[in-house]
Design a protein around this nucleic acid. Structure first.
Lengths: 340, 340
DNA sequence: AATTGGCACTCGGTGCTGGTGAGTGCCAAT
DNA sequence: ATTGGCACTCACCAGCACCGAGTGCCAATT
């Protein structure tokens, strides 16, 4: 295990060839195949020598003593960092993706669902989309509807057309008239403010006691909605395309698949995992997490290709795919970026 | 193939024993096992005779010439219709289910998601929940928010706290003030009306032309929202618990699983399937659809246990589970009912 | 006439064996 | 430093015998 970070050009070429061959076929790749298909300029014996040093320094693995080589996590890492050439997103793919997103966005929820669907379609992996976290987003509109004498429904529309609903108890009996009046007023005074600004506003002095309480309660819940959204707890996590995994031979074994599904369907864990991975890194660009780098035991052998998307000014969420480590990174990455 | 509908008591008892043994073990059940475990009063030879007549008349199947018997679709049908004794929902299960549903319902969406989650948990199968179809539900509240000079967001709250959002184009330039005024007015005049009643209302005469157009457009979209919801097209379909299927030996073969997942993840098809199945039958009660009865080729070997739930007065949706035909119907049915 | 014990037969599952071929490691020649 | 050659390794596969659970049938019993 030698930790030199730079490989000589021939090793690079060989590594690249191994990765691309293996991702295509899923079968450990041998020296002769390499010599014929990719690297005519050297003989299989030369390549064999290089391969064995690549194994020694940890970029390749040998499933068993007399088999071909497959890339190790480190090999993949080197590949995506230095060797990969991203493919163009083909016109055919664009034609699949574009019509899903109408020019005028409708409900954010549906949009995310559609995004998950189409992303799964074009990447042949499991797509994962987390709801936008509207940390510090500004208020666009609010509305309070009386449900019964003790509860009301608070409807909050944030920047980026993020619609939130929240049922809360009223300590003061009141009627719809009053609630409508108050919310109309709030709509005038609070529009375009972010939570901090709302909190900083001085209370209006001229109210009677009951109305003042109401106001305070409503504002409190507005703030709650605007902020809790970013807490990561109840962020929506949508996934789609599990069936795609079934096409991959590495999930021919049902146990492997179960481990992965346990993660994917455990929304809470998944959400936390994603945010920790996505936020830990640079904000911009597509981010590839390979195999054990997820630090989740069950995801060994899987990789994530993630990026963030923006909805409006402050709202952003994570979108990406989960697939076998043997993934067409050169194709998946740009497609993820395109959809986002 | 003899179509007598009534079996003599001993055949009933044997069929019942076969079903319950097979659902437990997943292995074709043989005459000796039956004699020992369930039916001490007859010898294995007697049971063998009965078994072979049960095969003849189509209630049982024999995977191969010298194997045990498994129930056929017809056998399962007879079992759930006449033989099954539903088990009590155990206290342990209640303790899992109850806390998921707060006494005061919050957002319907979240509620459904929670229901799907817990149903998958307690039935060990894939749960499927379709959004409520609020056909003819009454209007509770509406709100129109200006997005830009040409589009507005319509927020509609229906009976049962069903919140709908809908972006639509405005043909007349206007401002938030006007929209708010109009929606406030609509809230007074339209509250509690169902779509037919709204349509029947005479237009208010005293408007200027621009406002009249606005009003008409808004009402049109309100009606659209209130009705499109029932169209079945874009009904939400939530599913959870795919991983449960992986525990079942019948899905050890990945191909089988793929066929099923193709159905489950194809939300549109699934929604239509469910509604056609659920609505075709009596409105009340739990409804079991066995194997080929679904008339969907890919679902051979699977069964559905479905029922409808109510949210508010007019809104109802479908909730149920999809599992292998070899399912614990006696346990699943009451649990589905309980959750609903 | 229904039930039962006995017995030969069937057939999927398991484990062993030997053959095959892709692929390696190493060495001597270039 | 590269290459051709060659012996060796090892997963994969087909063939085979064996085992045992389970059946079908028949003759004996109730």
């Amino acid at each position: 295990m030698d930790f030199e970070l730079t490989l000589d050009p021939r090793k690079q070429q060989i590594l690249k060839a191994v990765v691309s061959d293996y991702t295509e076929t899923g079968v450990p790749v041998g020296s002769v195949a390499l010599a014929i298909k990719h690297l005519g300029s050297w003989s299989s014996a030369t390549i064999r020598n290089e391969l064995s040093t690549l194994v020694e320094i940890g970029y390749l693995l040998q499933p068993h003593a007399s088999a071909g080589r497959i890339p190790s996590d480190r090999g993949y890492r080197y590949y995506v960092d230095f060797l990969m050439e991203e493919e163009q997103v083909s016109a055919a793919v664009r034609r699949q993706v574009d019509p899903v997103f109408p020019t005028r966005p409708a409900a954010v929820e549906e949009l995310l669902e559609a995004a998950a669907m189409v992303l799964a379609l074009v990447t042949d992996a499991v797509s994962i989309v987390t709801g936008p976290r509207a940390l510090g987003a500004r208020l666009k509109h609010l509305d309070v509807v009386s449900l019964d004498s003790e509860h009301a429904l608070l409807i909050v529309l944030l920047e980026g057309n993020l619609l939130q609903q929240h049922v809360f108890p009223l300590s003061v009996q009141t009627d719809q008239e009053t609630l409508s009046r108050i919310s109309a007023e709030f709509n005038r005074t609070l529009r375009g403010l972010d939570p901090d600004a709302i909190e900083a506003l001085p209370p209006l002095p001229r109210d009677d006691a009951a109305t003042a309480t109401l106001r305070a309660e409503i504002v409190a819940h507005v703030l709650l909605v605007m902020r809790s959204d970013g807490a990561g707890e109840d962020t929506v996590v949508i996934h789609d395309g599990v069936r795609n995994l079934l096409r991959q031979p590495e999930f021919g074994d049902v146990m492997r698949l179960r481990q992965v599904l346990d993660i994917v369907e455990e929304e809470r864990a998944l959400g936390q995992l994603l945010s920790s991975l996505a936020l830990g890194k640079a904000v911009q660009g597509v981010h590839v997490v390979i195999g054990a780098e997820t630090e989740v035991e069950q995801l060994r052998g899987c990789s994530l290709v993630l990026t963030t998307y923006r909805a409006g000014d402050a709202a952003r969420g994570t979108i990406g795919v989960l697939g076998p480590t043997r993934m067409r990174y050169s194709q998946v990455s740009p497609r993820v970026r395109y959809v986002s």
